[in-house]
């Protein structure tokens, strides 16, 4: 496990597509440093030969019939779109 100083807030904010202010970066770095220090204790546990657990439900390989069924009508699917035109979502220009 890593030392707290390994938390690179600029790199992470970029990966998470999150614009942070200078004050936020300073505050979150400090608070997350405390939390990372706390979770260091997991190093004490012997996990050799232990299978990781993704979730607790005893279900595996859930299959469904590939059947056509009613979906959300276009108007409903677009009702929360911030900007739309002719049944399409409008975004800022992507390609110059």
């Amino acid at each position: 496990m890593s030392a707290n100083s390994d938390l690179n807030i600029d790199y992470l904010a970029n990966l998470a597509r999150l614009a942070l202010t200078g004050a936020e970066k300073e505050k979150f770095s400090r608070q997350l440093g405390d939390i990372l220090h706390y979770v260091e204790k997991l190093k004490q546990v012997d996990v050799s030969g232990v299978e990781p657990m993704a979730h607790a439900s005893p279900v595996f390989n859930v299959w469904q019939e590939d059947a056509v069924r009613p979906g959300l009508p276009v108007d409903e699917a677009l009702r929360n779109a911030p900007a739309q035109r002719q049944h399409m979502i409008v975004v800022p220009k992507v390609v110059e």
Binding site: M1, V39, L42, V50, P52, M53
Partner: peptide
């Protein structure tokens, strides 16, 4: 170091 190890400790807790 973090996520995978946490999932293994999760198994032990279960």
């Amino acid at each position: 170091a973090y996520y995978l190890r946490a999932q293994k400790v999760r198994t032990l807790i279960r």
